[in-house]
Design a protein around this nucleic acid. Structure first.
Length: 818
RNA sequence: GCGAGAGUGGCGGAACUGGUAGACGCGCUGGACUUAGGAUCCAGUCCGUGAAACGGGUGGGGGUUCGAGUCCCCCCUCUCGCACCA
């Protein structure tokens, strides 16, 4: 018997697939399309187990759908711009382009060695000018529509990466990539107006229901953070002007006992200038501004503030209200100023307690009185209005509406909607990224590069030192340019785009990757949207939000006709070893190359799919891998042991119903399990079936039945372990490759049914016996048999039988007295 | 603190709409075949008793039900996300 040699088998079929172009697909209007996409990798050097897991899951679905008759688009590419390439240049003196392309070449080889069914003709690398050219075009179109703008503002600055970060890229006050503590910096940069789509991005979350994990939808909703409220002007006392605040609780406006401005609020300086408090306040503001984002946003930080010495007037009741500034009010949100109602807001309450500010109750619960001096915390619930003039006695909900109406009618404020979502800052002070296609002209200002001059190529001759800001600024040949508008001398923008811009539309480019006349054509209509997207949860509010935004923008620019890019999303769990995420610093990394060399790609894939369901974390265990390797050997031996039995005549054998039933059972189970992404149970069932086939190895089974079983086994296992199945299919069964073009086997529900069914007999809910009855036995007969079962009789003897419950084909429960 | 998810053998994990808890795999125990094996095969493996019978058992406590891992209430633990957003 031939030994199972994964290396030999796997390289043989990989070569075959490539030569026969098995994975290449074209548009075919006669077939239903299925776009299966996995998040493309950053070419960091080599694949890690997280990639292998992601792509193994994807490959199962791609192959399965293809065998089901779908025209499956399954592309792969490279998220090729990014900092590590630049760091490699700084550390090892290798050019980012060289480093990137070498990594791509190696990782591509690894992907091929895993047997993933990608159509490599569609491969894209985002650092290729033919890719980012279109991105630059989108930028210009967005600029023309006011969706890309330049602004001078306080941005997140990562000292480690020496560049700006978008809000989404700051995780717990730290850089999402390098973990450095993020600071603030005043900087001029380019922004994409994602806030213009806040409402739609939020609303369309409804369209994702059912297709996306609820968790991701919730995270996106929270990130967008819509809140409805009221803006109100509080006139300043003794001078011109007013303080505009935003509140979601207009019903508490009679309970305002102080105002708080964000330390960055322009009025702070204005109000204290030339007063005795000037020094104290300035000192405070300086101190707060110095606090890093991490410190200022962490819970431990105590609320602190200072009185500005100024007062304003509550426009509803004329009360005189002191104005403070404090660290817990953010300039970025709402109007940067709040009305403080300590009785009904916990933060205001804490602040009032600390500084001895008055507390005034304006809402009481329905069933009791509320006294300010009794409060140990703010009362934030609903109730009845008190101390609120004309609104007393009203429910606070009603008062909310009435007060808003009044404020709007008097012209001192308006209802507004606020979002937490900020515009997306895309300028990066780095080299290895797509250049922003703008030329600054001393007389015309920023001018977009004309379309016909795109792409603005990233120059390759550049010195990368990691010091002194953007490397592009040093390349005079790049920087100096003619103003497209007036023809005068101008200078190019030297910042590059955030790499999340590239990943916001790559899935569209796969549809027409080589097209030179435009970013995409009618093929995008055929393939999009992506039917199934697979990747890690870490992009729940980064990539996935940006990609949704881009899709909507491109739709409005006339390129697309749909609203959402990804119909279904599967977020896979992490790969864990020894209780922790695999990482170099922990030294618990398992290298895919190692696994392939020792066990082969099929075993590696099988283990990953078998050890845990996709959305859960996967615990890497060498012993588990060995178990899977053992199974494939068992499978291999089974085929060669059965091989001689396949040759004989099929006549003269007793029809074996159970043997046939198992075939259909397997088809049903595996199909259903793949549909719900329960690959582990699908594989478990196939293992069980193989165990059964070994048991009946010496039984007189017709050769045609054996053949049917083995063929089914190959077909059902193929999405998981494509190489070994292809080999057995051809070498033992003598069939034509590739399996990918064979039809997924269907099952006959009638044949899945067993002729005899096992009925569990319970007495008072406890299992006491089991009986076997022929399919179709009438209920009355089954109940009789159950009562006669010895195990049941032991427990019913001498007792009164009260009820008999029958669950068809499952159990009988005899309820009797005790 | 808020929100979501999860707690099942020695381990990874099964159990679709309430209906035999522990499938499958790992590990472990014993045996067979072997010069040998960490190869392969057979048997066993939730706990209590040698075994049957029986009893207990899905984080803890209550409840609904003929019947609860599954549904409801309270509590504990863990993971993830958000975290002064007015």
């Amino acid at each position: 018997m031939r030994r199972y040699d994964p290396q030999q088998v796997e390289t043989k079929w990989q070569k075959f697939w490539e030569e026969k172009r098995v994975f290449e697909v074209d548009e075919d209007p006669h077939k239903p399309k299925y776009y299966l996409l996995e998040m493309f990798p950053y070419p960091s050097g080599r694949l890690h187990m997280g990639h292998i897991r992601n792509y193994s899951i994807g490959d199962v679905l791609a192959r399965y759908k293809r065998m089901q008759g779908f025209n499956v688009l399954h592309p792969m590419g490279w998220d090729a711009f990014g900092l590590p390439a630049e760091n490699a240049a700084i550390e090892h003196g290798v050019h980012p382009a060289k480093w990137t392309y070498e990594n791509i070449a190696y990782m591509k080889k690894q992907l091929k060695r895993m047997g993933f069914s990608y159509d490599w003709r569609r491969e894209i690398a985002t650092c290729d000018p033919s890719y980012y050219k279109w991105e630059q075009l989108f930028f210009i179109k967005m600029y023309e529509r006011g969706l890309a703008y330049r602004s001078f503002s306080e941005v997140n600055w990562c000292p480690g990466c020496e560049t700006v970060l978008a809000n989404e890229q700051v995780v717990n006050g730290r850089c999402w990539r390098c973990g450095s503590e993020v600071g603030k910096k005043e900087l001029q940069g380019w922004f994409l107006k994602i806030t213009a789509y806040a409402e739609e991005l939020l609303r369309d979350c409804e369209k994702l229901l059912g297709g996306w994990p609820e968790k991701v939808i919730t995270m996106q909703k929270n990130w967008i953070g819509r809140s409805e409220g009221l803006e109100v002007d509080f006139p300043l006392e003794g001078r011109e002007g007013s303080i505009r605040i935003f509140t979601t609780r207009p019903d508490t406006i009679f309970g305002v006992t102080f105002m708080v401005l964000a330390p960055e609020h322009p009025l702070v300086e204005e109000l204290v200038r030339g007063t005795e408090r000037e020094t104290e306040v300035r000192e405070f503001v300086r101190r707060v501004k110095r606090q890093s984002v991490t410190v200022r946003s962490s819970e431990e930080v105590e609320k602190e503030g200072v009185f500005l010495g100024a007062y304003c007037i509550n426009p509803l009741n004329g009360e005189r209200i002191p104005v403070w500034t404090a660290n817990f009010v953010l300039m970025e949100y709402g109007t940067g100023a709040i009305m403080a109602v300590p009785a009904h807001d916990q933060r205001d309450f804490e602040f009032a307690k600390k500084y001895g500010l008055p507390i005034k109750v304006v809402i009481r619960p329905k069933d009791r009185e509320l006294r300010a001096e009794d409060l140990s915390e703010a009362y934030t619930g609903d109730g009845i209005m008190v101390n609120s003039g004309a609104f007393d006695g009203m429910s606070n909900r009603e008062a909310m509406r009435k007060i808003s109406d009044l404020v709007e009618a008097r012209g001192i404020g308006k209802r507004t909607v606020n979002y937490r979502l900020r515009d997306w800052g895309i300028s990066r002070q780095r080299y290895w990224g797509a250049p922003i296609p703008i030329i600054y002209c001393p007389s015309c200002g920023p001018v977009p590069v004309p379309e016909e001059e795109l792409p603005v190529q990233l120059p390759l001759e550049v010195e990368i030192t990691g010091k002194g800001g953007s490397p592009l600024a040093q390349v005079e040949a790049f920087v100096s340019a003619r103003c497209p508008r007036c023809g005068g001398p101008g200078r190019r923008e030297t910042d590059t785009m955030d790499t999340f811009v590239e990943s916001s539309w790559y899935f569209l480019r796969y549809c027409s990757p080589q097209r030179e006349e435009g970013p995409f054509d009618e093929r995008v209509k055929y393939w999009m949207p992506v039917d199934q997207y697979i990747g890690g949860v870490e992009h729940a509010v980064l990539h996935l939000l940006y990609a949704r935004f881009f899709t909507k923008v491109l739709r409005d620019l006339g390129y697309l006709e749909f609203d959402e890019p990804f119909s279904r999303l599967l977020t896979q769990g992490m790969v864990i070893k020894d209780g922790a995420k695999m990482s170099k610093s922990r030294g618990n990394v398992v290298d895919p190359d190692d696994m392939i060399a020792r066990y082969g790609a099929d075993t590696t894939r099988l283990f990953i799919l078998f050890a845990a369901p996709p959305e859960k974390d996967l615990d890497w265990k060498e012993e588990g891998v060995e178990g899977c390797f053992r199974f494939l050997n068992r499978l291999w031996r089974l085929f060669y042991e059965v091989e001689p039995k396949l040759k004989g005549e099929s006549g003269g054998f007793r029809e074996d119903g159970e043997f046939r039933r198992r075939i259909h059972m397997a088809r049903k189970k595996v199909t259903e399990d793949i549909e719900r992404f329960h690959f582990n149970t699908a594989i478990a069932h196939l293992m069980e079936w193989v165990n059964y086939l070994y048991e009946v190895l010496d039984s007189p089974i017709a050769p045609s039945l054996w053949r049917e079983a083995l063929e089914t086994l190959c077909l059902l296992l193929h999405p998981f372990v494509p190489h070994i199945t292809e080999e057995l299919w051809v070498e033992v069964l003598g069939k034509e490759p590739p399996l990918l073009d064979c039809q997924w086997p269907s099952y006959d529900p009638e044949l899945v049914k067993a002729p005899e069914i096992l009925i569990v007999v319970q007495v008072n809910g406890k299992v006491r016996d089991k009986i076997t009855v022929p399919l179709g036995t009438p209920e009355e007969r089954i109940k009789e048999l159950a009562l006669e079962a010895p195990g049941a009789r032991r427990h019913t003897e001498g007792k009164q039988i009260r009820r008999i419950i029958y669950v068809p084909d499952k159990l009988v429960n005899i309820v009797c007295g005790t």
